[in-house]
Design a binder for these strands. Structure first.
Lengths: 205, 205
DNA sequence: ATGATGAGATTGAACGATCACTCTAGACTG
DNA sequence: CAGTCTAGAGTGATCGTTCAATCTCATCAT
């Protein structure tokens, strides 16, 4: 049932967050299909039946969790959009991005979401809609970074065809690939990698 | 018909392949945990019980399938190792690599394996061992490509510290990231992307 | 040639466990 | 006391796995 009254919403929203927080850990540890409602309810310190007062189904929990995570991922883009020197801001975020993407729990959840999106049309629609927005805005960031860079060097900002879309794709692919690397290579040398990532950004932008 | 000298091994190996082939499609479509033995048995055109004569458990099927896929992925490295002009060979494989990595079924299975590796220690051990080998050999390829490139331009092959390990990581991350991009962005512009990927390789090597 | 034989190939019903989900009844609050 | 929150046993379905029964067919004695 949908809680529609006002006081219900406040407490309800807190309970929803409580469930999503618990589910995040469970899903990262055991996957969407490996995690039972009983496991989530135990982690959230409530009964199985109670969970169904806030989410219609297990898939609704997964969808809400994914939506929350996707919304958070847009904050990074906002940070770049609001930065004074966009290019410099991107260079400075490399370390943090590398750290986050190679965190085992975050990497596991990210891969779980992608794997689910690859086979579940509803999840696919979610992540693709969010990606389209993020991609569009990130392309704007890339374009502005490049304009700043080229105008600083040559004073010429407009030339030939614009491959900013492809550059954006490559940058995203590079960082999303780090998630895969974290799983495949736990001995990853982060310092040297971060340095090289910045070098690639300088070459691309 | 097959000679009866070793009917057990020959026929058994064929049946194993038959099961693995069927399972590959099922797993890509519904995931490891979303696929039942009944589904696999139907796809492989045999009974559920019969499958257990060739694999001890469902996890054994998953492990065998992953091992087979990992072994196949080493063929690409061999191709580079045997190439006359390593750098040129890498450039020429960009298109095929992009095509393979953005194939929906292959991408789904790849992500499924990574997600499973992120939470299942046995699968993690499999993929990490394979990755260590592939990484080591690919680093040799990268090093030889770079030596050829620098010696061709300047005649100087040895200088400063070697970041070939980091370059190898970045190259792998870039292509593994394409798998994620294929899921996130079905409208991916492959032509422009391939061109830019080659440009990145030229900058890195 | 042929029927008997038996070992491996193959089946699918059966089983216990576990799952997502429901429902009824008790606890709490204002 | 009225209405909401909460609990946890119950339900039917499905899962991985097992196993006893059946089928297939190369081999060999006749």
């Amino acid at each position: 049932m949908k809680p529609s009254t006002e006081p219900c919403t406040a407490r309800g929203e807190q309970r929803r967050s409580q469930i999503l927080d618990a589910a995040t850990g469970c899903f990262a540890r055991e996957g969407f299909h490996g995690t039972s409602i009983a496991t989530i309810s135990k982690a959230a310190a409530m009964s199985t039946g109670h969970i169904y007062h806030f989410f219609a189904s297990k898939e609704a929990i997964i969808a809400a969790l994914i939506e929350r995570k996707l919304a958070q991922s847009l904050e990074l883009v906002s940070h770049f959009e609001n930065a004074e020197d966009v290019f410099q801001a991107m260079l400075e975020r490399v370390d943090q991005g590398l750290q986050e993407r190679t965190d085992p729990a975050q990497a596991a959840l990210e891969l779980e979401i992608l794997a689910e999106a690859a086979r579940n049309p509803r999840v696919a629609a979610l992540v693709r809609e969010a990606d389209a927005i993020r991609r569009e805005r990130l392309m704007g960031v890339v374009r502005s970074a490049r304009q700043n860079r080229t105008s600083r060097d040559t004073g010429n900002t407009s030339d030939k065809e614009d491959d900013s879309a492809a550059v954006t794709e490559v940058v995203i692919a590079l960082f999303e690939g780090l998630t895969a690397r974290a799983v495949n290579n736990p001995t990853l040398e982060r310092t040297a990698l971060a340095q090289l990532l910045r070098q690639v950004l300088r070459a691309l932008l």
